[in-house]
Simulated assay, not measured.
Amino acid sequence: MEIIKTERLVLKKINQDDYEEMKIILQDKKLMSVGWGKTYSDEEVQAWIDKIIEQYEVFGYSYYLAVEKSTNEVVGIMGILPVTIKATEYIEVAYILKEKFWGKGYATEGIKECGDYIFNTLGADRYIAQVIPENTSSSKVAKRLGMKVIDDYMREHNGKGVFHLIYALTKEDYIKQSN
């Protein structure tokens, strides 16, 4: 089921038929080392898909499969996630792109449309992105979208704390950018 469309991408709900694609992404050592610090076992990939499907049912959104329109090739995953940080609930945008698609503007394009969806369909007043400072590419994406650092914290990854910056874009700033 297609949820969000951009000029080059279609973001559609992930389902059980996407298991092999999710394995390719979630078991890629280079991709997963950037922000996740681990790869997923086959069982963890299945549990991850089950969690995403549950989030669709509970929240109406989660990660989506990002597919290139012209080739029907899976670019990666991106989407909208509920998250609680320091006892504050946020709507977060996040993505993991296959290395082949890095540096081609897909993250900015897809996440911009996710932001449009957050403001125009979900009616939220802001959204965030969590970025480790070493991930300069994701920091650049956040800045291109007009996001600003509002906080930082230590996020637990596999039993250890990893420093994250919290970028945010308010609906007010989004509207100013659109005009």
Rank of each mutant, 00 (worst) to 15 (best):
Y167F: 15
T170D: 05
I150R: 14
K112A: 06
N135W: 09
Y106I: 02
Q130I: 12
S138Y: 08
N158G: 09
K160T: 09
A87P: 03
I80Q: 05
S138K: 05
P82D: 04
R126G: 04
I80Y: 06
P82F: 13
A107L: 11
I52W: 06
I91M: 10
A168L: 06
L165Q: 13
V131E: 10
Y95N: 10
Y64T: 01
N120T: 03
H164M: 12
F119R: 04
N72W: 02
Y153H: 14
V149G: 04
T71R: 07
I77V: 13
F163P: 09
S139M: 08
G146A: 03
M154T: 09
D152V: 05
K86H: 06
D116H: 00
E54Y: 15
N158V: 12
Y117S: 00
G146V: 06
V149D: 04
K100P: 03
S137H: 11
V93A: 08
D116L: 00
R155K: 14
T108C: 02
L65S: 03
V74I: 10
K104V: 08
E109A: 06
R126A: 03
F119W: 04
F101L: 03
E92M: 11
K98A: 03
G159L: 08
E172R: 13
S138R: 12
E54H: 14
K69L: 02
K140R: 15
T84Q: 15
M78W: 04
E109K: 04
Y90R: 02
G115E: 00
G159H: 10
E109F: 07
C114A: 08
D152E: 13
A87E: 14
H157D: 11
H157N: 14
K69P: 00
K112I: 04
E54D: 15
E89L: 10
Y90D: 01
E172L: 10
K148I: 07
D125L: 10
K51R: 15
G115F: 01
Y63V: 01
E73H: 14
A124R: 15
E57F: 09
A129L: 07
E54N: 14
T121R: 08
A107Q: 07
